[in-house]
Design a protein around this nucleic acid. Structure first.
Lengths: 263, 263
DNA sequence: CGCGATTTTGATCAATGTCAAAGGTGGTGG
DNA sequence: CCACCACCTTTGACATTGATCAAAATCGCG
């Protein structure tokens, strides 16, 4: 019941502050002064109930979005009706876009929970870029990070067997959540995805995802319950998920768990 | 014998002009005056023989590249040694990057033919952005296009069977080649990829790629020979490749071939 | 001519998809 | 409070795609 949902209207003065923490945010590399500057260009703060769309395939949104609260997914429906989930966007993250007015986007963005998002209208965003050129570099950097993630998903789906594929995705999400939330101490987190979502993101059938989830549970690696993930054996997950433990939150949990520091 | 290779040193005055045509280029949305402006920021024109690297995984290139002549591939070597090809870059196209100095790139860029590339050093590029803010928007747009392509590859690898997967890739490349080269009138083009490249881009085994290539040839759909592709039945390829014929060079060949115009 | 890389072919096997169906769960309205 | 419904999870049997292994044939090239 609204574990990640919005209970009440957003405090517009606060929203941009959530964006200042974490590596994937637009405002992270900026001073507080600059954040205030950006806020002035923001056109709106929009809320969308779980299951709603920020925009749909072939819409021409003419706006950019920054997620303040909640999870959304980017997906694409293919010619035969299958859904491919391309990426997720978490609080503080920007959403990829076609920053050209009047061009149809090739994907849709749907909320997985109740969501609040900052809206930057096309024109106002371009004005922002013109008037604050150093933000251009930040935007390009963000865009490059999105692309890097897309590349990682490509590797994951293309080359890893189901077990590793599933683990890799879950660990990526855990990483992204922990990037901006303070660690709670337990290796567990809220993940509002059904097995169908996992299947559509990983290019597997729901049934096979289910079997894989069970296997991971039985092997004591991770539990994927209702809308929560518990990592039972982080070191084991990292290893099988094909993730370098040293590159992965070294100071927050992997080192603590494995005790296998580089020295 | 250097069909797409460089025979002699590049004419530095000409290089930027090759970038002005085609949708994927940095300079496309710019005036000739602006192109001249950009050229002033270019640090170098670098040539790389076929098989050489522009940069490697975990390098810190500190520079951006625009391909002037030849083909390159972006790839990543996974933990188990498999190679995943992420994207190709053709003449006139920019290469994705981490525009943050001192950060290791997660992929490598290797040339498939002799290659010439414009080099923009980090600092000079940032100066360019600051001094010409409207270019920032163009860059972001480019970056978004790269991401869109990554998404498309993800869909392709994730959900399509081998036949369609192969066709989709070949058609994408044909499309990109024709985007900037004038149509020769024949539905054939130079594609400097071995079956191993195709396999590594598509997430298939070489043997299976080979069998699929043969099948397509026998079905009269397309021939993939030495380093050349001949599309024997464009309409059929588009259909099986899951590509909307109307979105695909409608005025250059698909309409002509299919005769199924929209009206 | 000989060598390495590439393409080709065949036989076999494993991972994953498909089909079918039974439980669970939560929400909604009576 | 119950009945019902949609959606999600779970399980089993079976089919199929594509991987793997092995080995020839071909090609480009020095």
């Amino acid at each position: 019941m609204g574990r990640a949902g919005l209970v009440k209207p957003i405090d517009p003065g606060k929203t941009c502050l959530t964006c200042t923490s974490g590596e994937g945010s637009l405002c992270a590399p900026l001073s507080e002064q600059e954040v205030r500057t950006i806020r002035a260009y923001r056109s709106d703060v929009r809320t969308v109930p779980a299951g709603g769309h920020l925009y749909r395939q072939s819409d021409k949104p003419g706006a950019l979005f920054s997620i303040v609260d909640g999870w959304v997914m980017l997906y694409q429906v293919m010619e035969d009706g299958q859904r491919q989930i391309l990426d997720f966007a978490l609080p503080g993250e920007f959403i990829s876009f076609q920053p050209v007015t009047g061009v149809e986007v090739p994907h849709a963005v749907q909320s997985l929970t109740d969501v609040a998002a900052c809206v930057f209208l096309q024109g106002s965003f371009e004005r922002l870029l013109r008037e604050h050129p150093n933000l251009g570099a930040a935007m390009i950097w963000l865009s490059a990070r999105c692309e890097a993630r897309a590349f990682e998903h490509l590797c994951n789906v293309s080359r890893r067997p189901a077990r590793a594929r599933l683990m890799h995705l879950v660990l990526e999400l855990f990483y992204r959540v922990n990037m901006r939330l303070p660690r709670t101490g337990e290796d567990a987190f809220f993940m509002p995805l059904t097995q169908r979502h996992l299947a559509d993101a990983l290019g597997l059938s729901v049934e096979h995802v289910n079997r894989t989830v069970r296997e991971l549970r039985q092997n004591g690696l991770m539990e994927i319950r209702n809308r929560e993930v518990v990592l039972l054996d982080v070191a084991g997950c990292l290893k099988e998920g094909g993730i370098d433990p040293n590159a992965y939150l070294p100071n927050s949990f992997s080192a603590r768990r494995t005790g296998a520091g580089a020295g």
